[in-house]
Design a protein around this nucleic acid. Structure first.
Lengths: 221, 221
DNA sequence: TAGATTGTTAATCGATTAACAATC
DNA sequence: TAGATTGTTAATCGATTAACAATC
C-alpha cells in the first residue's frame, strides 16, 4: 500500500471488480486470481493487481484473492459500507427508470427523494417516493442527509439544478443531461449522458468501402 | 491531416464539440476559437485543435473555426450525414426513457424497432413503435437496415441478446446492462451502465474527517 | 502592420504492461 | 519441493499540454 494519488481510471474499475466478485460470491467461489479476473473483465491482470495494491495487500501469493474479503475491502474503499442517500431531480422517463433501478441495486446507494418543477408531477408517485416541489430541495437534502444528486432534467435546466444542489450541500453529482456543468472543484461530477456514447458509436460504423476485406479476427467467447 | 490511428478518447470528444457547436449555431455565432471551446467544455485548447487536425484543416489562422462548416465536418466524421438506424432490445423503464429521447435527438440516429421477450409487452406501444417478439429480430434488422443495437435488458440476458444482434449483422452496441459483453473485435461495444458511474462517485464522498479544512478554491462559473 | 489563432512538433505527464523476486 | 500467483519496479506506450512558426 502506498499513498500515491489514485487516478480516476483506477476508481472507475473498482465497481467493475466488485460486480464480478459479487457474482463469484453468489456462486460460492472462494478465491480468484488476477488472471481470471482479467480474462472475465477484459483487463490486464497486472493492472488489476496494481489497482488493488494501491489500497492494501489484499491477495495471497500463490493463491489469489479471497472473494468475500476483497468484496468487503472494495465496498469499504467505495464508502459502500454505509448507506449513501441520493436525490433524483427530474421525474421524467429517465428519472422513473433510475428510481426503479434502485430495487436492483444491492449496493448501499439509495434514492430517498425525487423532485420536479412541473406542478403536474408534484405529488405523484415514483416507485415508493412522492415527487416533491423544487423549493423543498434544500431542506430535504439537509434533513435526509443526502450526499449525491442525480440530474435527469432537460439540458437547459441542468446547470440551474446543479447550482441548487450544490448550494444545499450535496457532495457529488451524476449528470444525465448533455451539458458540461460548472461547479466548485470540491464537487465531484460524473457525466452519464448517453447521447455522447451513442454518437461516438456511429464513428465506428463501417462505411461501405470494401466489406470483404474487413473481417477481422475474433476473440474467443 | 494525418492518417494516424484515431484514439477512442478523441472520438468521444467529437460529439461534445458537436453539441456545443450546434448551440452556437442556434445563437447565430459564426466563428469560434479553440480557446473559447476549451473554456466552455473544460478542455485544453491545444487538445481541441489537435483533435480536429486529425481529420482535416478546418480552422483559419487568426480567425478560428467557422461554426456551421465545423458542424458539417464533424457530422460527416461521425457518419451522421446519413440516417443511422438503431434497435432497442428491452422494453422496460429504461427502454421507454431512451425511445422517448429519440424525439430530442436532432442528430441522425433513430430507433426504428423495439423488441422484448416478455409476451405481455409484445404488441404494446413505445412512443411511435410497437414492441416486437424476439424471433423477428433478425429479419427486422436486415429489412430495416439497422446498424446499432441498444441493450436495455436485465444483466443475465445481455450476452444472449448481444449474440443475437451480432448474428443478425449489427455493427455496434450500446450496452446499458452491467455486464462485460464478449464479442468479435469487429463489433464496437460501448458500456453505458450508470451503476458503475454511481458507485465510483461514492468513492469521492468526503468521509467525516475535518470538514472545515476542506473548502477548496472555486472555479469560475 | 499588429493581433489573433491555427496546425504541428516537441516536451511532459500519466497510465498500462512486462517482468520478476518474494512467498504461499 | 514445485507450481502458482502476488506486489512492485522498470519499461513501454499513449495521451495531454506547451510552445511557436505560419498566416489570416
Amino acid at each position: 500500500m502506498k499513498s500515491e494519488k489514485i487516478s480516476e481510471a483506477v476508481v472507475r474499475r473498482l465497481p467493475v471488480y466488485l460486480r464480478y466478485l459479487n457474482d463469484l460470491n453468489k456462486r460460492e467461489v472462494a478465491t480468484v486470481s488476477s488472471q481470471e479476473l482479467g480474462q472475465k473483465l477484459d483487463l490486464n491482470p497486472a493492472q488489476i493487481r496494481k489497482d488493488l495494491a494501491y489500497f492494501g495487500d489484499f491477495g495471497r501469493k500463490g493463491i489469489g484473492y479471497d472473494v468475500s474479503y476483497l468484496i468487503e475491502k472494495i465496498r469499504h474503499i467505495l464508502n459502500l459500507d454505509q448507506q449513501i442517500n441520493a436525490v433524483l431531480v427530474g421525474a421524467g422517463n429517465l428519472g422513473h427508470a433510475l428510481s426503479n433501478y434502485n430495487l436492483y441495486l444491492r449496493e448501499n446507494i439509495k434514492i430517498v427523494a425525487v423532485f420536479d418543477e412541473n406542478p403536474k408531477k408534484i405529488g405523484t408517485r415514483i416507485s415508493t417516493l412522492t415527487v416533491q416541489p423544487m423549493d423543498e430541495i434544500s431542506d430535504t437534502i439537509k434533513s435526509k442527509n443526502i450526499r449525491i444528486g442525480i440530474i435527469t432534467v432537460p439540458d437547459v435546466e441542468a446547470q440551474n439544478v446543479a447550482d441548487r444542489l450544490i448550494a444545499s450541500g450535496i457532495e457529488a453529482i451524476l449528470n444525465f443531461a448533455p451539458t458540461i456543468l460548472k461547479a466548485p472543484a470540491s464537487i465531484r461530477i460524473h457525466a452519464a449522458d448517453f447521447t455522447t456514447d451513442l454518437l461516438s458509436l456511429a464513428y465506428y460504423l463501417d462505411n461501405g468501402k470494401d466489406e470483404s476485406a474487413d473481417d477481422r479476427e475474433h476473440e474467443d467467447k
